[in-house]
Amino acid sequence: MLSGFFGGGGHIMKQVLILLFALCTAVPVHAQSVDAELDGIIKDAKGNFEKLTVIDKSDKALKVSNDAQVFSTQAANKAEKEVKDATAPLQMDANRADQMRSQLLAMGCPENGGSVAIELAQRCNPLIDQHRTLHDGVLRRAAELKNKIQTVRTLRENITKTTLKNAEQQKKNNDERAKLIAQKLEIKTRAVIADLKNKATAEKACTSMSTAEGQACCHKVVFDGADPKLCGVEAMCEAFEHGGMFGSGLVICKVASK
């Protein structure tokens, strides 16, 4: 004779299965809080990384600009030397033109032209043509040198303005970089401290420290509450990262800028 089944047995078994499934899939509250905290840290780290990247790009642009100013200075120096080298020969030709003019006047050649005896005209005209050619050439070369030296002056003014502007921007970049690097260290410190709550995983991560002293120090941080800075926050952060404690948030310990 078969014994009877307890009433509602199937319903109870279903509840047990649901309970077991819930226990297997539930995430501990502690883990949830750490994950939420790390999500915030990763977000801050990404923002810090992006700002440092912007400064890196600005620094590179400033270097290109400063290199260009060096090149421009060399070009200005070269042009200025060319003007100086050309000044003495130009002055000699200008003096020679003045001497020819004095000679023409002494010969009785009219400065403003006019009717003269054929004999005087035959003597004066060839010399007048030579003087005019020399005179016009001196004026043309003088104008070219004047324009060239003005270009040099303008170039030097632009170099000075750009150099000062670049220096001012570089100072801003350096100040901002210092703040962001300090912020980056603080973010790494927060990441390390957040994962200290999971001591078993943290202890395992300590073994990836590069030296025995570092591993020992890391263990003191995990179990004795020592300051992570004593072991080097960046080294601990990288150890925890290599231990997989940050999941996909590798940006936390990545060297964003040098």
Score class of each variant (00 low, 15 high):
L2V: 01
L2K: 11
F5E: 14
G7M: 13
G8C: 11
G8S: 11
G9C: 12
H11P: 00
Q15H: 14
L17R: 02
L19S: 15
L20S: 08
F21E: 10
A22M: 14
C24P: 01
T25R: 01
A26Q: 09
V27Y: 05
P28T: 15
V29N: 02
V29R: 06
A31C: 02
Q32H: 06
S33C: 01
D39P: 01
I42G: 08
K43S: 11
A45G: 05
A45T: 02
E50M: 06
K51T: 11
V54P: 06
D56T: 04
S58D: 12
D59N: 14
A61I: 04
V64R: 14
S65L: 15
N66G: 08
D67F: 00
A68N: 10
Q69R: 12
F71A: 14
T73E: 05
A75V: 11
A76V: 00
N77S: 13
N77H: 08
K78M: 03
A79Y: 02
K81G: 00
K81L: 13
V83H: 00
K84M: 09
K84V: 14
P89W: 06
L90S: 05
M92K: 05
A94G: 11
A94V: 10
N95W: 04
N95Q: 11
R96A: 14
R96C: 02
A97N: 03
M100T: 03
S102M: 09
S102H: 10
M107D: 11
C109E: 01
C109P: 03
P110A: 07
N112K: 10
N112R: 03
G114M: 02
V116F: 04
I118G: 04
R123Y: 01
N125D: 09
I128Q: 06
D129I: 07
H131T: 08
T133F: 07
D136P: 00
V138T: 04
L139S: 10
R140T: 13
A143R: 15
K148N: 04
Q150R: 09
Q150V: 14
T151K: 13
V152A: 12
R153W: 09
R153Q: 10
N158D: 13
T160D: 12
T163I: 00
L164T: 08
N166H: 07
E168Y: 03
Q169E: 12
E176V: 02
A178H: 09
A178S: 08
K179Y: 07
Q183W: 09
E186H: 04
E186P: 00
R190E: 13
I193Y: 03
L196D: 11
L196E: 03
N198M: 15
N198S: 12
N198K: 14
A200I: 12
K204T: 15
A205G: 12
C206V: 12
S208Y: 10
M209T: 06
A212K: 09
Q215G: 08
C218I: 06
K220A: 08
F223I: 01
F223H: 13
A226F: 03
K229M: 02
L230D: 13
G232W: 02
G232Y: 04
V233T: 10
A235M: 03
M236N: 02
C237I: 01
A239E: 07
F240M: 15
G244T: 12
M245V: 11
F246I: 02
F246K: 01
F246P: 02
F246C: 02
S248V: 04
L250W: 05
C253G: 05
